[in-house]
Design a protein around this nucleic acid. Structure first.
Lengths: 138, 138
DNA sequence: GGCGGAGTACGATGTTTATCGAACGATAGC
DNA sequence: GCTATCGTTCGATAAACATCGTACTCCGCC
């Protein structure tokens, strides 16, 4: 498979600011690609895994959720792996709130970058109106 | 990565019919998933590879092409691998014509199965009107 | 200050994937 | 029948990927 951001890639800077959380999203140490840096192949790769597709479908229904709230059928370290793939592909945005990460879809960035792509994937996954594919709603 | 149709999977039946080629597409021994069997994750996986995305983008511009006609920068065995992934995901249809395979997009099947998905991916790849992403046209 | 929870980093394992070369089969043309 | 072409299969390699357990950090709460 083509090399994508994944395990072994340089981790996000771990320096901690003294500011309280949610001062500004940019204050969080998690790195996110700029909208123009989002690569189509990385987005499609991120969405091609059933676990990650499930995460994205759930976020489409209810945004701003913590990692734990998805109740994924894998261990915490695997969850961390999947959320990182989604974040580094530019599909989700994560920001720190205390000990949790609030995850949300980068809907506007993705729509600007690849118009209609996210919506068509979500429809295909059975989210939103007219969905007839696999059940993706948690 | 999740298990998909790929290397090692049961090959298409190798029985040969005595009928001349292109009598009917169904006479070709290549197996294609029925439209309702096309899985979203497999389609996204197939399209997440830059080489396969290039193939699909080229077919969007000019359908019914032979494997060789794409002039892909990989060996013939790797080409065979990629075309098989696309066919088994249900993205392309292949039919035999002499020593060649004619490849074409399963546009209608994909549109019926996942409305808008292929078009949005092609736009994102820079094919068709309004495309502004990476150059995908050969 | 201690405890619990959320999530991470690290290292490991097993599987999947993309790549290739060599040998081969099928077809077309002569 | 021979040759050339297209494409395949097989086996191999290296890299990528999903998975996990362990130990850890950080934060919130008491």
């Amino acid at each position: 498979m083509s090399t994508y951001a994944g395990q072994g890639m340089a981790a996000a800077a771990t320096a901690r600011l003294v500011e309280p959380p949610s001062v500004r999203e940019e204050a969080d140490p998690l790195s996110h690609p700029a909208a123009h840096e989002i690569a189509l192949a990385a987005v499609l790769h991120a969405l091609s895994d059933p676990m990650r597709l499930r995460i994205v479908a759930a976020l489409a229904v209810e945004d701003k959720r913590t990692c734990k709230s998805f109740n994924l059928p894998v261990t915490k370290s695997t969850c961390t792996h999947h959320f990182r793939v989604l974040r580094e592909a530019g599909v989700i945005r994560q920001r720190l709130e205390g000990t949790t990460r609030l995850n949300s879809l980068r809907r506007e960035d993705l729509e600007a970058r690849f118009p209609g792509l996210l919506d068509s994937v979500l429809r295909a996954a059975g989210v939103a109106r007219g969905g007839s594919g696999e059940a993706g709603v948690p």
